[in-house]
């Protein structure tokens, strides 16, 4: 589904990603861990198409197509979704309007008609239960004045509504209490299917008790310094990152 081959990326003059390769197949869950500043968010943003990063070499294919050649909205329309580490506030645009616009644009790009507004309401009602969110939040401006936890839930609500093929969760667990963590990971697991894939970026092994990965990769200094199965996460929990970072 996703094939990252020796990608190098920079922001301004600063090289951040220094040769990353990663293959994600349908049905798989990959965890990306690593110390602060190692380039995890940069990798996630590069996949989503953030204009602030320049890919200087390497390639990314998605479903066999050149992902880096696509505008961010095209990537989303083809099923790529990034839950932002720091979700963006959009005063003046309600959550409901935002979600319906996104939903319909994705349908349009895939040759489908706009959803009937009543059907959309039903869909929202179902999805909002999944993330245990107050329906009143739908009529508030996107993320404006939301607490940290509310923003993260809102990201998962968007993911639940848009049903991506490739979901990347960038530290969706950071700053959540245990109850919220259960709800959020429950939502992610409920959306898991054999034909989609998830990349969870996290700083803490704790999340992986709820969302169980097939593969764990450790990113340090802009490179993947170690990959393994889910037991690698436990080893990291016990030993920290230093032994890997020093070795790199």
């Amino acid at each position: 589904m996703l094939k990252i081959d020796n990608i190098h990326a920079r922001a301004g003059e600063k090289e951040i990603l220094k040769g990353i390769s990663l293959t994600v197949n349908a049905g798989e869950v990959h965890a990306i861990m690593g110390p602060n500043g190692s380039g995890k968010s940069t990798l996630a943003q590069v996949i989503a198409g953030h204009p602030g990063f320049e890919v200087t070499s390497g390639s990314i294919t998605y479903g066999g197509d050149d992902l880096l050649d696509m505008d961010p909205e095209v990537r989303a329309q083809k099923g790529v979704f990034l839950a932002f580490q720091y979700p963006v506030e959009i005063p003046g645009v309600t959550n409901a309007y935002f979600l319906r616009s996104a939903y319909n644009e994705i349908r349009k790009a895939n040759g489908q008609e706009d959803i009937d507004p009543m059907d959309f309401l039903d869909l929202m009602e179902k999805k909002i239960k999944l993330v245990d969110m107050d329906p009143a939040m739908l009529h508030r401006s996107v993320n404006a004045g939301f607490s940290g936890g509310e923003k993260k839930r809102n990201e998962i609500l968007q993911m639940a509504v848009l049903e991506p093929k490739l979901a990347i969760l960038d530290e969706t667990d950071s700053g959540l209490d245990i109850d919220a963590l259960r709800v959020v990971s429950g939502g992610v697991n409920a959306l898991k299917r054999a034909d989609n894939a998830t990349i969870v970026v996290t700083h803490y092994q704790r999340l992986l008790n709820y969302i169980v990965p097939d593969f764990v990769h450790v990113l340090a200094g802009g490179k993947i310094v170690k990959s393994g199965g889910k037991e690698l996460a436990l080893e990291l929990e016990a030993k920290g990152y230093d032994w890997l970072v020093d070795a790199a």
Binding site: A48, P51, D71, A76, Q77, F81, P87, I90, A102, Y103
Partner: peptide, 14 residues
């Protein structure tokens, strides 16, 4: 720009 990117990342055209 960041708000624009956020919206695009949800499939909304430029």
């Amino acid at each position: 720009d960041i708000a624009l990117f956020y919206m695009k990342s949800r499939g909304i055209g430029a």
